[in-house]
Design a binder for these strands. Structure first.
Length: 466
RNA sequence: GCUCUCAUCGUCUAGCCCGGUCUAGGACGUCGCCCUCUCACGGCGAAAACAGGGGUUCGAAUCCCCUUGAGAGCACCA
């Protein structure tokens, strides 16, 4: 490792779809790597075999790609590193810095309840600390399984967090926590804290940027580092993303999955911009920026300490903004529709009216099929049935006598100026769209073509009784 | 319950470290006006916050303490 080289990582566990909070943690890590010229790693934390699933891992990979976060090609999977973890656990066991514990889950639960009742901190009693070699052998021989606990010395652990400053923990409130499970004397399965420490060490991670929910985990991981005589990385704990009730956004809710936003038609640039603003702010009042612009200015110091409520309205605003900045051809690609002249005209007509891609079909449905609508809708608020009919008749006549679009357009515009724009344009627009709200009539005509437009105007006249 | 963390408009936040320039700035949202055939876009404008109480100081959103509130962690999950 080069001296002073920055190495950060994102370490999601594939026990659910790529969470919006994980995406933001990834973003801040990525931003930091970009800013410092450091390396960004992805690590899959799938030590929990029961809950980890391949489809979730794939979702995470896809999400990273969608967001445009590139990472180093070496992706660690904890499920493949059991032997390495075992080596370290054994080292701890041999050094008497960790021990086997055979306490049953029931016993542990009971102890915890008692401690709770007595208003005591919930920590393991240390009962199995002094089990003799013989006793341990015997239990294993009988087929008993154990967990491995680290022997926690009584001390104060102080670490400096890049966002929160100095944080202190007293280890008496931590106790001997488990670092491995299912030990039968020969094999064992490493648990989260151990795996994290080992992996961060072996990949030379220099700065751990993660969610605030890990703040209280940090002293435990430091304890493992010290027992193993490993260097301590720096830490930066990000505030959490909250729901409207100010509780942590949970994976249990579908709307927290990044892929849901992608499916709904949000753009990655909008998502990145939004997630950045959720806890970080530049020096000036600028709020819309590219990844490169943010990275250039990004500093951990400007990260907010308090949790931020996820504001879907602002996300929509940002998305609408980015949607409008796209060209018609780009949008056709995003919408996965053919780049035809027709489609581009449709896109141009509704572009500034949609805030997610998924609205496109709703906004443009009337092009393909004129919806049923009440005849009264054709009458402008300041007008009446007679005038409306007269104007529609005139438009129909214009369609008959002009066989190219620009001629027809000019004739209609001239007529509208003479008769009053609302008197002409409103009924025409409703005749063409059937809707209260839609793009302008000329825009619609352009997509529909003269023949179809004439059809729809005739239909309107019929509905009105002309 | 124990431990830790946090606290400016409804929401995201600027300002706080280095007290006065803060009658507290911006953005989303809301409301109004303009533009306008409708909706949207765009433009202009309005309402809207320093959690409370004590200090320190000539002076506090900014520094200190307490209270209150909120959140997270306390697994043989990650």
């Amino acid at each position: 490792m080069k001296q002073g080289e920055v190495r950060v990582r994102i370490a999601p566990s594939p026990t659910g779809y790529f969470h919006i909070g994980t995406a933001r943690t990834a973003l801040f890590n990525y931003l930091y790597a970009l800013k410092t010229g450091g390396k960004f790693y992805l690590r899959i934390e799938d030590t929990d075999k029961e809950r980890s699933e391949k489809k979730y891992e794939e979702d995470i990979l896809e999400g990273m790609k969608w967001l445009g976060f590139t990472y180093e090609p070496e992706v660690l999977r904890q499920s493949e590193r059991g032997e390495i973890y075992g080596k370290y656990v054994r080292k701890l066991l041999e050094a008497k810095k960790a021990y086997y514990c055979f306490c049953s889950k029931e016993l542990l639960d009971k102890e915890r309840e008692e401690q709770m009742a007595k208003k005591m901190p919930q920590v393991y009693s240390g009962r199995c600390r002094n089990l003799s070699e013989g006793e341990i052998e015997e239990k294993f021989a009988k087929g008993e399984r154990a967990v491995v606990r680290i022997m926690t010395p009584l001390m104060e652990i102080t670490f400096s967090d890049a966002i929160r400053g100095e944080v202190k923990f007293d280890t008496q409130y931590i106790g001997d926590f488990a670092i491995a499970k299912n030990a039968d004397g020969k094999t064992l399965e490493a648990l989260y804290h151990l795996a994290v420490v080992i992996d961060d060490y072996e990949t030379n991670i220099t700065l751990v940027i993660r969610g605030e929910d890990h703040l209280a985990n940090t002293p435990k991981q430091i304890l493992i580092q010290e027992a193993l005589d490993l260097p301590r990385p720096e830490y930066a704990h990000l505030p959490l993303i909250l729901d409207e009730k100010r509780a942590k956004l949970s994976k249990r809710f579908a709307a927290t999955a990044l892929s849901d936003y992608r499916k709904e038609g949000y753009l990655p640039e909008a998502m990145r911009n939004f997630l950045t603003l959720l806890g970080w702010h530049p020096v000036d009042d600028k709020e819309i920026f590219t990844l490169e612009e943010i990275a250039a200015e990004f500093t951990l110091e400007r990260i907010q300490k308090g949790g931020a409520i996820f504001d879907g309205k602002k996300l929509r605003f940002l998305n609408a903004h980015y949607l409008r900045s796209k060209s018609d051809v780009e949008l056709a690609g995003l919408l996965e529709i053919e780049v035809t002249e027709q489609n581009c005209k449709k896109i141009a007509a509704v572009k500034e009216r949609m805030d997610t891609l998924s609205q496109f079909s709703i906004l443009t449905d009337f092009f393909d099929a004129l919806p049923e609508y009440p005849a009264e809708r054709l009458i402008w608020k300041k007008s009446d049935k007679e005038t409306t009919g007269k104007n529609l008749l005139k438009i129909s006549e214009i369609f008959n006598t002009n066989n190219n679009f620009s001629q027809a357009k000019m004739a209609i515009e001239t007529y509208a100026e003479e008769e009053g724009r609302g008197e002409v344009l409103w009924p025409l627009r409703v005749a063409l769209s059937g809707k209260e709200a839609s793009p302008g009539p000329i825009e619609i005509m352009e997509v529909l073509g003269l023949a179809e437009s004439q059809e729809r105007v005739k239909k309107a006249l019929k509905n009105l009784g002309f």
